[in-house]
């Protein structure tokens, strides 16, 4: 293959037609409450880990909805599981529980 001295830019667009949303369905069955999230960001604001890097629990939940599992797994590793997020969530979402599940995504290989 020829090189022309530049790289094609990878599209950041989320293609929901191609995203794997089956896990979202599975999550909906297994874990209750997480769909109630309205993206208010109070979890991220209080997060023990968020202040010290790019970790953003609110965004992780949103990425889940979009089926961006690889990114979810990459992000979730930064969670320290302290559970402060649970206390501030106005929609009573157990964000910590979600992050624990997402940490496991690292080991799940997807097609």
């Amino acid at each position: 293959m020829k090189s022309f001295g530049f790289q094609k830019i990878v599209d950041r667009q989320i293609d929901l037609d191609k995203a794997d949303l089956s896990l979202v369905q599975a999550l909906a069955r297994e874990l209750t409450g997480w769909q109630r999230c309205i993206g208010c960001g109070s979890c991220s604001a209080t997060c023990t880990a968020a202040g010290m890097g790019s970790f953003n629990p609110r965004k992780v939940q949103m990425l889940v909805r979009m089926g961006q599992w690889d990114q979810v797994a990459q992000e979730a590793v930064h969670c320290q599981l302290c559970g402060k997020c649970r206390l501030v969530c106005p929609r009573d979402v157990d964000t910590r529980q979600l992050m624990l599940e997402f940490k496991k995504l690292q080991t799940i290989s997807r097609p």
């Binding site: 950041r12 667009q13 989320i14 293609d15 929901l16 037609d17 993206g39 609110r58 965004k59 949103m62 990425l63 979009m66 961006q68």
Partner: peptide, 12 residues
Amino acid sequence: EDTLTSRPLKLT
């Protein structure tokens, strides 16, 4: 745009 992930989105 999925503004909550700051990424453009396409869907059929």
